[in-house]
């Protein structure tokens, strides 16, 4: 991919193996993203989440460079800058929500970015409203339902105004209504994203490009193919629609 300006994020020859193992989990990964909507699929344990952790600087690659807007991310100052621009939504929202109330949790990031408490409160309330979570401010994070937790976790990230979202299996364990809502939200955001998911319909609805991790390397999937397959579900004999 050629860009006039350097892409927002670029991975150059990233390799990684878990400590204590000789086999590489990820081998020479090259990838760049600017404003695209990318989906990432692959079997369990193939290194998708590890790739996100490498990008966010939570793990250190064995070799290779990560470039943010053309600058190599090496020092801890660069990693901090990268973390301001990239938002990582964890697979389990429980790990992401740790403050007693929703407002405090959403305001945690903006406060750390140096916003005044008043501004942080405004940004948080605004973000919650944007996600359709008005009046959630005083709710206790622990008592939220799974779907609400996922949306609040997304709000905690969006409140920091990132330029790229990394979403780790966001549609897992969501009921159909919340899943639809998440799709609407992601489509409405003017943000680049990379989504890890096993839910192909979810990826088809939110992404334009698909990649797969196979045997440690990242491969771009072919464009959509028209195909048909047999399936079964209740009320299947009535006319109905599938996916988008």
């Amino acid at each position: 991919m050629n860009y006039e300006t350097p892409p927002l994020l670029r991975l150059c020859n990233i390799s990684y193996s878990h400590p204590g193992t000789s086999a590489s989990l990820l081998q020479d990964i090259n990838f760049s993203i600017n404003r695209e909507h990318v989906g990432l699929i692959g079997p369990n344990g193939c290194g998708k989440t590890t790739l996100f952790q490498l990008i966010m600087g939570l793990l250190k690659p064995d070799s290779g460079t990560i470039l943010l807007e053309g600058n190599a991310v090496t020092k801890s100052r660069d990693i901090k800058k990268l973390r301001r621009k990239l938002g990582f939504l964890f697979q389990h929202s429980d790990d992401q929500l740790f403050s007693p109330t929703v407002l405090e949790d959403v305001a945690f990031g903006p406060l750390n970015l140096g916003l005044s408490p008043d501004d942080a409160r405004d940004v948080s309330v605004q973000t919650l409203e944007q996600l359709g979570l008005k009046d959630f401010e005083g709710r206790i994070t622990h008592n939220l339902s799974g779907g609400e937790k996922k949306l609040v976790a997304l709000a905690t990230i969006l409140a920091m105004k990132p330029q790229l979202l990394l979403l780790d299996e966001p549609s897992n364990n969501l009921d159909p209504a919340t899943r639809e809502r998440l799709i609407e939200i992601l489509r409405g955001l003017d943000l680049a994203h990379i989504i890890i998911s096993h839910d192909l319909d979810f990826l088809a609805a939110t992404c334009t490009t698909l990649y797969t991790v196979q045997d440690g390397s990242l491969q771009r999937c072919e464009q959509k193919q028209v195909h048909s397959h047999e399936h079964i579900h209740p009320y299947g004999d009535y006319p109905h629609q599938h996916g988008t």
């Binding site: 939570l58 301001r84 408490p117």
Partner: peptide
């Protein structure tokens, strides 16, 4: 393990050892 993941979530959101209260 849980604590480690929560810590990761915190540093990703700019935490540097200081908890800033929303109410001052």
């Amino acid at each position: 393990n849980r604590a480690e993941r929560v810590h990761q979530a915190m540093i990703l959101r700019g935490f540097d050892g200081r908890l800033i209260p929303l109410k001052q």
